[in-house]
Amino acid sequence: MPDRIRLKAFGMLAEKIGADSLEIENPGSSEVLRLQLLQQFPALQSLTFRMAVDRKLIQAETDISAGQEIALLPPFSGG
């Protein structure tokens, strides 16, 4: 299985990235992914966002395995 992950972006982040879904090579961990994204999309540098791995919000650096779904979540504003 190729070492790739699915990345989903929501709200303001999808606008800044220019897509709501991307398939990318697995960076191995959430922190490496974050740094990679900030470099690739400098517009994200001024934004606050959290990540979810397989639909669970992560609280600390988390390993990412192939096939997982990573989501980039701006601050929630439902209701």
Partner: peptide
């Protein structure tokens, strides 16, 4: 419920 919905559900309003 209202407090938790607003704080914890991944929903965004534009």
């Amino acid at each position: 419920l209202v407090e938790r919905i607003k704080a914890e559900l991944p929903i965004w309003g534009k």
